[in-house]
Simulated scan of single mutants.
Amino acid sequence: MDKNINDISNKEKIAIVVVGYNRIDSLSRLLQSLSVSKLPNSVPLVISVDCSGNEELYDYVKSFRWQFGDKYVFIQSKRLGLKEHILKCGDLSKYFKAIVLLEDDIYVSPFFYDYIEATVNKYSTDTQICGIGLFKNEINGYAQIPLEFLNDGADVFLWQEVCTWGECWTYSMWSEFRAWYDENENFSFEKIDIPQEIKMWKNAWSRYLLAYMIQTEKYFLYPQISLATNFNDCGVHVNELNNTYQVNMLYGSKQYILPEFAELNKYDIYCANSKLYALLNMSQSELTIDFYNLKEKKNYKRWILTSAILNYKIVKSFGLNLHPYEVNIMVNNSGQGLFLYDTKIRCKNIEKNALYSYFYGNLRLNILIKGMIGFLRNKFISRIKL
């Protein structure tokens, strides 16, 4: 251990906390990306490695040279598992102005620290923000199709989704969640309206932060362009290397446009932009927005806005042409792609679901299908050869 963290007080600095287990190549790649980043002269680095018995990795992190400031190395004496390890690393936020937590399969933009400094300085005292994300999702992981957010000129937006691929917390953000978690470790996720897939996760720490965020009506702050990407390396939760979560990152310096909280676009866990309620002259208590068709039907309100074809009366419809989807409502684009239903009146609808053609187009959808057939054929042949 290079330094004892209990002996320091570094509340003026935003520290980088790197989390690893047994993947030396992944950890090395992340640390190298940090080493070539545009950083100020004094940035503390904490490397926390869960107990794996990998002596080569232990020696590597101990000998790794950090030229930007103090380095702290913690090798856990017993196996914590990812959830407990992340919680323990989040607790390190009490020693610093804020921490940036990076798991070992993350890779950062050279300009990530400018974004972190700007957003921490702007939003650190905003009690409705419970974390700052570096990664901007380009795929809706629950629906497995593209994900888009409105770009109104601001460099950030708010979303009730936990960023786990590069995240930042001040101690006030983290400590409020930690207090909630300590009282709700046995939380029943059936209480809250979240995608069904999340309810089936067994060991994910992030679903607790998500439940906390929804119950307390808080948000994560996200960038309009990512400051980190994800290699999704093989490990405990991933069996095969893939590029599913590689995203476009910022490769240049910029001055960030950071509006006040009230002015930011706000999305719920289902990617519904809160501005749509006013545009449709309805409240959240009477209207369900389910563009990706992920909500459980038992949670539907009387009025539903969705791309799905349902057997209720269509009171208004919009085209699915402009991106992202909410722009079609903002400009009142006519068409048959988004439907506002009244669930009190049942009727048979024969419209065509336009969701996939909206994202892929007919030509691209054909290419996608052919590519999938080819992928499955190659998989089948490779298994036969084995």
Rank of each mutant, 00 (worst) to 15 (best):
Q196T: 14
M1P: 05
Y58I: 00
W180S: 02
M282F: 13
I314Y: 01
M213W: 04
A262Y: 14
E138P: 02
V18T: 03
D2P: 01
T306M: 06
M213G: 04
A278H: 14
V49I: 14
I8P: 03
E185S: 15
I214G: 03
Q144M: 14
K94Q: 11
A308H: 04
S48A: 12
L87W: 10
I86E: 05
R364D: 13
V49P: 00
K218I: 08
L365R: 10
R377I: 13
V327L: 15
S172K: 13
Y107R: 15
N332S: 15
A118Y: 09
T125C: 08
F64L: 04
R65P: 01
Y208T: 09
L279P: 00
I350L: 14
D342H: 02
E12F: 06
N140Q: 05
R29L: 09
S35M: 08
G141H: 13
F96R: 01
I99G: 01
L305N: 06
K218S: 03
L31E: 00
N281P: 02
S283R: 09
I214L: 12
L363A: 11
L258M: 08
A143S: 12
L279F: 11
Q255R: 15
K38V: 14
Q32M: 12
P259W: 11
L87Q: 10
D59T: 08
M200R: 15
K191I: 00
P40V: 05
Y113Q: 01
A15Q: 01
T229K: 02
K97L: 06
Y21H: 13
C168M: 02
G20S: 12
L34K: 03
E260L: 13
K191Q: 10
Y356W: 06
Y251P: 07
I145H: 08
N151W: 09
L227F: 10
W201Y: 14
V315Q: 09
Y21K: 07
F112N: 04
F359Q: 03
K97V: 07
I345F: 09
D193V: 07
Q160I: 08
K94W: 07
A354K: 13
W66D: 01
K88D: 12
G20N: 03
G361M: 05
N242M: 04
G90Q: 07
L31P: 00
Y123C: 01
S42A: 10
L134Q: 03
W159N: 12
K275R: 15
L258D: 10
E56A: 14
L322H: 11
Q144A: 14
L276D: 01
W66R: 01
I329W: 12
L368P: 00
I198K: 10
Y142Q: 11
D182E: 15
D91M: 08
V247C: 01
S253A: 15
V19P: 00
K199V: 05
K301L: 02
I289W: 09
D126H: 13
A204E: 14
G53T: 04
L310M: 15
N186C: 06
L34N: 04
A211W: 01
N273P: 07
E217A: 04
V17D: 01
V156G: 04
D59I: 05
L147D: 04
F339R: 04
L368Q: 10
T216P: 00
A143D: 06
N366E: 11
V315F: 06
F291G: 05
F177N: 04
G371C: 07
L287S: 07
I139H: 02
Y277V: 08
F187S: 06
I139C: 03
Q67I: 09
E197P: 08
